[in-house]
Structures are given as C-alpha cells and as structure tokens.
Computed example of a mutant assay.
Amino acid sequence: MLSLNSTVRIVYRNPATFFGVHVTSTPLHLTYYQLSLASGQIQKFYQSRKSQRKLAVVVLGHQVPLYGGVSVLGNTQEHLNSVALPLNLTFVVRSRAFILGRLVKSKFYRRIRCSVTLHGNKLGKHLNLTDSCVYN
C-alpha cells in the first residue's frame, strides 16, 4: 500500500488584451507507467484579461494498492537513498473565451505532461518541473 501527498504549483497567465477566459481542467494524475498513484483537481476559475494567478493543487493518493506493480519499493528501509521512481504527471487545461458576449466562443486546450523522478533521499524537498514538462 502506498500513500502519496504532494502539492503542484502552477502559474496560469492570460495574455489576451480584449477578453477574459473561463478555465477548467481534467484531474491531475500522477502515474507510474499505467498505475495511477495519486490525483488532484484544479477548481474552476475566471481569469481576466492581461493577468495571471498562482494555483496550488493537492495531488493525493491514500492507501493505493500496488500488487507488485512497483517492485523498487519493496524492502526500501535499508536502501532508501538509492530508490529512484520515475513518475508522470498528466493533465489538460481547458480555457474558454466568450469574445462577443456569447456570440463567438473560442476554446484553448493545452495538454501538459511532466516527467518526474522521485528520489528516496530527496523526499519532502521541492522539485522544479519547469524543464521537465511538455506542452501540447
């Protein structure tokens, strides 16, 4: 069984000069290959034109059964410093703009996938994901 508690900080920026956007998101999934270890959700919000905001999203997994899926975690008490677990953080940010009232509606979707390596000797420390994310 695995419990995982982490916080993902995101800066959302709206560079548009004429309209604000309504922002939603799919759940943030933290996975080890195809095994989902934790998830979190961004709350809906409205971002006005030419502004930005910082979001903090809790990505939580409580008592996730592993069933032998993560073999590197077996018997880690002796060699915690040598454990390295490759994880993926994936989610989609959906922005919707109503440009002329509700007459013209534009949608902007951005898929985000971040490769994270969880090291046993760096548990509880901040990890910068700026260079490890791919935006589609």
Rank of each mutant, 00 (worst) to 15 (best):
Arg9Thr: 13
Leu2Gln: 06
Ile10Asp: 13
Arg113Pro: 01
Phe91Asp: 07
Leu66Phe: 14
Arg110Asp: 01
Val21Asn: 15
Asn136His: 13
Gly61Lys: 05
Val104Phe: 10
His119Val: 13
Pro27Arg: 06
Asn5Val: 12
Ser25Asn: 13
Thr76Phe: 06
Ser48Trp: 09
Arg49Asn: 06
Ser71His: 01
Gln77His: 04
Arg113Lys: 06
His79Glu: 02
Ala84His: 04
Asn75Val: 03
Ser115His: 08
Phe91Arg: 08
Arg96Glu: 14
Thr76Asn: 11
Gln52Phe: 15
Thr76Tyr: 09
Leu89Trp: 00
Phe45Pro: 04
Val83Lys: 01
Phe45Thr: 14
Ala56Phe: 14
Tyr109Phe: 02
Val23Ala: 07
Thr90Gly: 14
Leu127Ser: 03
Tyr33Phe: 06
Pro65Val: 13
Leu30Asn: 10
Cys133Lys: 15
Val93His: 03
Ile10Leu: 15
Arg49Met: 12
Ser95Asp: 01
Gly68Tyr: 09
Val83Ala: 01
Thr7Gly: 12
Thr31Asn: 05
Ser39Phe: 11
His62Ala: 10
Val116Trp: 10
Lys44Thr: 04
Leu118Thr: 13
Lys54Thr: 00
Gly124Glu: 13
Ile10Lys: 14
Ser36Phe: 02
Asn88Cys: 14
Asn81Ala: 09
Arg96Leu: 03
Leu129Phe: 02
Gly40Glu: 05
Gly74His: 09
Ala97Gln: 11
His126Gly: 11
Arg49Gly: 01
His126Ser: 07
Gln63Met: 13
Asn88Ile: 09
Asn136Ser: 08
Tyr67Met: 02
Arg110Leu: 14
Thr17Ile: 15
Leu55Met: 09
Lys122Ala: 07
Gly40Gln: 02
Leu35Asn: 06
Ser82Cys: 06
Ala38Tyr: 11
Val11Arg: 14
His126Asp: 07
His119Tyr: 13
Val70Asn: 13
Ile42Tyr: 00
Gly120Asn: 07
Ile10Ser: 07
Tyr33Ala: 08
Gly68Ser: 12
Gly69His: 12
Arg110Ser: 06
Val58His: 03
Ser115Trp: 08
His62Ile: 13
Glu78Lys: 02
His22Met: 02
Leu87Glu: 12
Ser6Gly: 12
Val134Ile: 07
Leu89Met: 11
Leu129Thr: 13
Thr24Asn: 02
Arg111Thr: 14
Lys44Arg: 08
Ile42Met: 00
Asn136Ile: 08
Gln43Gly: 10
Leu4Tyr: 15
Val72Asp: 00
Lys125Glu: 15
Val11Pro: 03
Gln41Ala: 04
Phe19Val: 13
Ser82Leu: 03
Gly120Glu: 02
Tyr32Gln: 00
Gly68Cys: 01
Asn5Gly: 05
Pro86Asn: 07
Ser106Arg: 04
Phe45Arg: 07
Gly124Thr: 13
Gly68Val: 00
Val83Arg: 00
Tyr67Asp: 00
Leu35Thr: 07
Tyr135Met: 06
Arg111Ala: 12
Gln43Asn: 11
Thr117Asp: 00
Lys122Tyr: 10
Ile42Cys: 00
Val92Ile: 12
Ala16Arg: 13
Tyr67Phe: 04
Met1Lys: 11
Val21Trp: 03
Thr90Glu: 12
Leu55Gly: 03
Arg94Lys: 15
Leu89His: 04
Arg102Ala: 04
Ser115Ala: 15
Leu4Arg: 04
Val11Asp: 08
Pro65Ser: 12
Phe45Met: 05
Leu85His: 07
Arg113Ala: 15
Leu103Gln: 05
His62Arg: 10
Pro27Cys: 02
His79Cys: 03
Tyr135Asp: 02
Ser25Lys: 10
Ala97His: 08
Ala16Ile: 00
Pro27Tyr: 04
